[in-house]
Design a protein around this nucleic acid. Sequence first.
DNA 1: CTGAAAGCGCTTACAG
DNA 2: CTGAAAGCGCTTACAG
Lengths: 334, 334
Amino acid sequence: MSENKKKVTLRDIAEKTGLSVNTVSRVLNKKPYYTKEVEEKVNAACKELGYIVDMNASGLRSGSTRTVAILYDDLINPFYSYTTDIISKRFEEHGYNCIMFSNNDRSPYVDYDLMRSVMARKPDGILSFLEPAADMVDFIKNSGIPFVIFGRDGSPYGMVGVDADEVYGGRIAGEYLLSRGYRKLAYIGSWHDVKVCLDRQKGLEQALAEEGMSLSPEHTFYVREQAFSEIIDKIVQDGIDGILCFNDIIAFIVIEALEERGMTDGLDYGIVGFDNIQQMMRMPRLITTVDVGSRDFAEAGAEVMLSLLSGSEEERPSFRDTHKSFLVKGKSTR
Amino acid sequence: MSENKKKVTLRDIAEKTGLSVNTVSRVLNKKPYYTKEVEEKVNAACKELGYIVDMNASGLRSGSTRTVAILYDDLINPFYSYTTDIISKRFEEHGYNCIMFSNNDRSPYVDYDLMRSVMARKPDGILSFLEPAADMVDFIKNSGIPFVIFGRDGSPYGMVGVDADEVYGGRIAGEYLLSRGYRKLAYIGSWHDVKVCLDRQKGLEQALAEEGMSLSPEHTFYVREQAFSEIIDKIVQDGIDGILCFNDIIAFIVIEALEERGMTDGLDYGIVGFDNIQQMMRMPRLITTVDVGSRDFAEAGAEVMLSLLSGSEEERPSFRDTHKSFLVKGKSTR
DNA sequence: CTGAAAGCGCTTACAG
DNA sequence: CTGAAAGCGCTTACAG
C-alpha cells in the first residue's frame, strides 16, 4: 500500500529491466530501433510496476504537452457544452486532453489575463469560442500556438475560423417571420460589439430591406448592456410582434417575461432563436430557431484543430470554414 | 515579432535584473524574504519582457500542478455541463484549471484506462461524476490524489462524496404520481448496476409500498441495456400510466416516442424526470422533475474539493455531504 | 535577505 | 541497436 504510493518512474523500469532510461523511453514512445525482446521486457516491467508516464515532464522536455485549451464564456448554454463534448472527445481519440478556460464573464473577448493563464499551461493548440480582443490578435499570433476560433468568423483577425454564415442565418429567420405575417420586428442581441451578434442582426435587416422595411434602432436591444425589464417594457409598449433573439436562451427568457405580461409566443407574437438547443436535450420543438447542425459543426472544428496540430505547416493563416444554417420551425411562431 | 516568439524564462528575468533565478522565483511566488526594491525590479522586468510562468515545469518540481481533473460521461446532459461550469469557475478563482476526461461512454465507471490518462496529468485533485469500478477503489485511494465523487454516493467505496438523497428523490416523485391518481407505474433507468439509478428506483418502490403496491420487474427498464422500442412497446401494451425516469433527457425521449403512439404526457399518462434541466436553460416548465438545487449542489462539490486541496489533512476518508431534493411540477403530470 | 547547486521525470541529441 | 550526458524551466533545500 505504501509501496503503491511511491511513484514509478522510468528509472524504476530501467533498473528492473537492466536497460537504460533512454532505451525504455524509446520503447514506450515507439521510436525506431529496439529488439522485440527489449520491447517485451519493458512492457512487462511497466505492467508489473504500474508505470504511468508523467506528461508534465514529457511535455517540458519535448515541447508538446498533448493538450488543447478550450476558451469559453460558460458551459451553461448547451451550444457550448454540446459542441465541447464532441470536440473534446475527438481530441481525446488523438491523445489530446482539454484544459478549460473561462473568461468568467468579464467580457466576451479573449483578453490578456485569459491568455496568460492559457499560455502558462503551454497547450499545443487553442480552440476558442471567444473572439480575441483587438489588442490581443498580434500577441496570439506571435505565440506560435495554433488558434482556432470556433463559431465566430476569424477572417477579420486573419485567423483560422470555423463559423456559420450568421448573416444568412439572421436573414432566413427574418424572412420567415415576415412570411408569417409579423410586421413590427425587433432584435435582441447579447453585446453590441460582437461580430456574430451583429451579423445575425444584419441578416434580419436584410430580410426587412427586401420588403422595403427597416429595423428601428429603438428596437435593437442587447441584453448584456441594458436592463432587461426596459427591453420588455419597450417591446410591449411599441406593439412588437416579431422578435429575433441572438440565441435560444435569450428567447426563452423573453418568452417567460412576455408571458407574465399576458403575451403568449406563437399566438400574440412570433419569436425565433438560434442554436436549436431543445433538440440537443431531446426536448419537444418549443421554439422556432436557426440550427447550424451542431454535430457536424463541432466535428469540423475538431478536424481543423487536429489538422493544425498535425503540423502540416502549410501556413493557412486565415483559413475559414463557413457552414450554412437552416430554420427549424417550432411553436413560437404561427 | 520573431523576438516575441522566443519564450521568456526566469533566467531572462534574472539576467535583466542582475538577480539570481532563485530570487526571481521567490519574488514571483511571494515566498518570504526579499526587499521592496527587489520586488519592484522583478515585477518591472517580468512586465517588460512579458514573462509567463511555465506551469508544467513548476508542477514537475513542486509536485503541485494546480490542476483538477473532471471525470464525466458527457457534457450533453446539462446536469453535467451546468454543474461543471460552476465548479470549474470556483476552481479557477483558486488558481486551479480543469482538465476534462470522458469515459467516452465505454461504461458508467472510472476504469483503469481512464485513471491512467488522468494520472499521467498529475492532477492535484479529481472530481468525478462517475463511480469508480469496484477493482479501482484501492488503486484510486493508493494514488494519494484527493478524489471527490460528485452526484453519487461515495460511502460504499469509503470515499468522499457530495450527493443527493436519491432514495428520497425517487420517493417524492413516486408519491406525487400516486397522489395524482396514476396507478400503473414504471421506472426507466439508465444502467441497472449504477447506485444512483437504483436508489431512485428504490424510492419509487417505497412510495408504492406505502400504498400497498409494488413495482413490477417487468416495468423496470434500463435504456442503456435494452432496445428502446421494446420499452415503449411494453409501456403501451401494459397500459402504464405513470413513469419515473432516471433523468429529464430520458423523460423527453420517452415523451416523444409515446407522442408518436398517440399518447400525450400530462393527459394520457404522467411522467417525472430528474435534474430540472429545463430551468437551467430558462425554458418553460415542460415536465415535472426532481430538482436537487444544482447551483448550491455544485458549489458544495467545489467546496469539498477545495478543502481537500487546501490539504487540511484531517483524513476524512468517507466524508459525505447529502442534499435533499424537491419536486418541481410541470405539464407532464395532471 | 540572496545565491549556487541539485533535481523533478522525462526526451533529445550525440556516441558508440 | 543501446547508453551516458545534457537540459527542458522551474522550485527546493542548503549555504552564506
